[in-house]
Design a protein around this nucleic acid. Structure first.
Lengths: 147, 147
DNA sequence: ATAAAAGTTAAAGTTAACTTTAAGTCAAGC
DNA sequence: GCTTGACTTAAAGTTAACTTTAACTTTTAT
């Protein structure tokens, strides 16, 4: 099967301009052309799914480009590509770890606001967060007097 | 306790320039000044920890600023602040969900490369990923002939 | 055969989140 | 009292990742 740039763009949820930008940056290796017009094939689509994975887990475009270049150089770069993938795995694991931590803080704030809304004021739940020492959060003075 | 901008910067792992930028953008409400010089207090430090949480979970600075402004307006904005926090919780949950998904793809690639390295070539593991249908990844032609 | 839709490029513009620079003010040690 | 180092501001510069524009070509539909 082969696809136009617009079809691929729709499948990936990006614009054609973005795909052309990726191509220019060397992120789309060996895309076929007919009369100068890009013709995407299944292998391109498969690669785009990997690209999407790397992009959405915050691998910088420069690093993705490096990965593409290594792939083009064949088997002698297998180890280096493996290392890049390992590095990316670490990034993702660390991000998940951090997000889970911050999620707890946010959930605490959720409870805090629910209580405050129930009570009608923040003042009423002022010294309530004491049960969660690291998080008696943002009691900003609210500029009660003086600006 | 009170702290200089440098002390706070070190505690937060950012530069003083970044803190001044945040202040200029209205992200640091009511920071005390002595002779024009910022003096951070414990309440500021506590807020900075929340700011850090929101920032590191990709809340845009504009939205954080909105949150700060709502906080200054007092109890009548409790519901709106709660809604912002809820929205942020959803963002985090969705990000964790996605990251876990992509983590699986990356782990698959890790295994793929380990096998290829063991075998000495990608060709040797060419039709191996069939066990993982959505992921028989990036077999880029490697420009074997013709560029 | 022609008009509209979809493709192309190079280059300039945008946005977010900082960072750097320049020019100056304030506090501490000698 | 003067130099050194930390503080200040406003404004310009940077970087990543696109997006938009302008001018042009190719494909598709009538």
């Amino acid at each position: 099967m082969s696809y136009s740039i617009k079809e691929i763009a729709d499948m990936m949820g990006v614009t054609t301009a973005t795909l052309r930008y990726y191509d220019k940056e060397g992120l789309l290796p060996n895309v076929k052309r007919v009369n100068g017009i890009r013709v995407f094939e299944d292998k391109d689509f498969k690669w785009l799914r990997v690209l999407n994975c790397l992009k959405n887990t915050n691998m910088p475009i420069k690093e993705i480009k490096r990965y593409v270049e290594l792939s083009k150089e064949g088997d002698k770069t297998l180890q280096e590509r493996y290392d890049l993938i390992l590095k990316q795995e670490k990034r993702i694991l660390e991000d998940i770890r951090q997000f889970n931590h911050y999620l707890k803080e946010i959930e605490f704030k959720k409870t805090y606001y629910r209580e405050a809304i129930r009570a009608g004021s923040e003042e009423a739940v002022k010294d309530w967060p004491s049960s969660y020492p690291s998080l008696d959060l943002d009691k900003i003075p609210s500029s009660k007097k003086g600006k």
